[in-house]
Design a protein around this nucleic acid. Sequence first.
DNA 1: TACCTCAAGAGTGTATACAAAATACATGTA
DNA 2: TACATGTATTTTGTATACACTCTTGAGGTA
Lengths: 217, 217
Amino acid sequence: MVPSIAITNRSLHDQVANRVRDLIIDGSLEPGSRIDEAQLIEDLGVSRTPFREALRTLAAEGLVIVRPSKGSIVRKLTPEDVFSMLEVLGQLERLAGELVCVRASDEEIESLVTLHERMMSYYDDRDRMPYYKLNQEFHSRLTELSKNETLKEMQSNIQARLKHIRYIGSQKPGSWDGAVADHEEMVLALNDRDGERLGEAMASHLLKTWVRVKDSI
Amino acid sequence: MVPSIAITNRSLHDQVANRVRDLIIDGSLEPGSRIDEAQLIEDLGVSRTPFREALRTLAAEGLVIVRPSKGSIVRKLTPEDVFSMLEVLGQLERLAGELVCVRASDEEIESLVTLHERMMSYYDDRDRMPYYKLNQEFHSRLTELSKNETLKEMQSNIQARLKHIRYIGSQKPGSWDGAVADHEEMVLALNDRDGERLGEAMASHLLKTWVRVKDSI
DNA sequence: TACCTCAAGAGTGTATACAAAATACATGTA
DNA sequence: TACATGTATTTTGTATACACTCTTGAGGTA
């Protein structure tokens, strides 16, 4: 009933998977590096069984590569990987944009606009980290409001795979202005419930993201 | 070097995951039913460790649901699940259609057309099962030729999730003619390398698939 | 009868032990 | 020195044992 109890009730497997996911995203585990099982189970204080189950989960999610009898490594994305992910993510969010204009309530659309405005105030302050976090949330929430569970799931998965490099990218100066302009366009389309325009804005935003992140790979 | 050796070299985990996947697709394991760990490890002749790792993989793929301390069940798709999957699959294959027209070689396009013609000959004979298999292969191969690995991966995943109900659906009479007409349109667009038209045909084909399969759920 | 309570059994989660494979390294040879 | 070979060490894969949690159902109570 109390959330914290629900969390501690989750299986060790899930907790381990989440912990390792975080280590990958923040770069504690470097892309391409071997995952030292002995070291990590020591750090996390669990035995090999739940740890290895967690690795299988992460492998299915595409964050880790398990090489039979040769250990696991953190997946290192090639530029081609990243491009293909952004291309697909763009297409998924295009659909999300179209659907959200049809399926979301006025209140839900309003909540997205509010989110956008909070982002903009961080932009005005040039406060990158909270902007980065709200940006992720905006895309997640918009996809959620498309009311398509599968779409949400696929979008989350790709976002998770890209999180590390976008996290890196968000720390150094880039063409931030362009991204903000894209978002302004999205909100205009959203207010008009113009699905086609919003979808187009989402897709082209993610294609431009490629230009912004490709140098940090 | 020899493929069969590579296969036997795969970890038990992978073999188990593949076996169970097949059992789910052909319906030996009924959707919604509990997965009897003891029974299955007996049948497959493995111990619990690799079996449970396989379950985690299948869970991440969305074929199985693991309920902590309460055992695993074969995921049973609701009509909403299926609709959302077809909506996303349609959008993914729309992209595949657009890309294949740009990125595939003449030979590759030709191979798709050949595949289509083989399908048609099974259609003429009203031979459902081989038609069904070639149909899956056509969509898989077309997506593969879009030369986007992520797109291929996501398409395969959704296709796997839907495989069981489409397998069921393929066994009973339906509006087969409509599906064939859709495919004829795809091949016309493909021959013209008209990406937009092909993409549109793919997407609308999968939306119509919803109408065809929704009663078998 | 309807509803608790609390064993007993079954099933699930985790740790550990052992087996098999890969890697690292030392030794010998050309 | 460069390379091959065999052995020690480390790491990975799998089986099993034990602990814990759920489910079931018998017995008791209102």
